[in-house]
Simulated assay, not measured.
Amino acid sequence: MTIQTARLSDPAVRAFVSAVNAHDREAFLSLLAPGATMADDGSDRDLDEWIDREIFSSHGHIDVDKESNGGRSLLAHYSNDTWGEMRTRWDFTVAEDGRISRFETGQA
């Protein structure tokens, strides 16, 4: 069963999922701390290139199935126009200012 985005526990993660699903690049970028980093399937990636390719140019969408670690770890179905739908995990590091300093994703 999918968890409604509005019910996600961590405010930064909730805003991240909302921005992805609304295809709102400006809102998404405002959630990231300066120098934010990310990894996909265990390998660090260029953040700007990855989010353009995997989220914004390919209409990415996250449906969260389960959250843990105070809402900073998600199991979700992720879909985009490039890869279709897959089961993924997402782990977030949130800085003291409430912005996301790192996220890691990959197949679950």
Rank of each mutant, 00 (worst) to 15 (best):
M1I: 15
Q4M: 12
T5Q: 14
R7V: 13
R7K: 12
L8H: 05
D10E: 06
A12Q: 10
V13G: 02
V13M: 04
R14L: 05
F16H: 06
F16V: 10
F16K: 03
F16Y: 14
F16G: 01
V17Q: 08
S18I: 07
S18R: 13
V20Q: 02
V20N: 02
H23M: 03
H23I: 02
D24W: 12
E26C: 12
F28R: 04
L29E: 14
S30P: 05
L31C: 01
L32C: 09
A33S: 06
P34C: 15
G35E: 13
G35H: 13
M38D: 03
A39Q: 12
D40P: 01
S43G: 10
R45W: 07
L47S: 05
L47K: 03
L47T: 08
D48M: 11
W50A: 00
D52Y: 07
D52A: 13
D52G: 12
D52P: 11
D52K: 09
E54W: 01
E54H: 07
I55D: 02
F56H: 02
F56S: 03
S57P: 03
S58M: 07
H59C: 06
G60R: 01
I62M: 11
D63N: 10
V64Y: 01
V64W: 04
V64C: 12
S68K: 09
S68R: 15
G71K: 00
R72W: 07
L74G: 01
L74N: 01
A76E: 03
A76K: 00
H77S: 14
Y78L: 08
N80V: 09
W83Y: 15
G84Q: 04
E85F: 06
E85H: 14
M86V: 14
R87N: 13
R87G: 10
R87Y: 08
R89P: 04
W90E: 05
D91W: 02
T93W: 14
T93C: 10
D97N: 09
R99I: 10
I100N: 00
I100S: 02
I100C: 06
S101F: 04
R102L: 12
E104A: 15
G106F: 05
Q107N: 12
A108V: 12
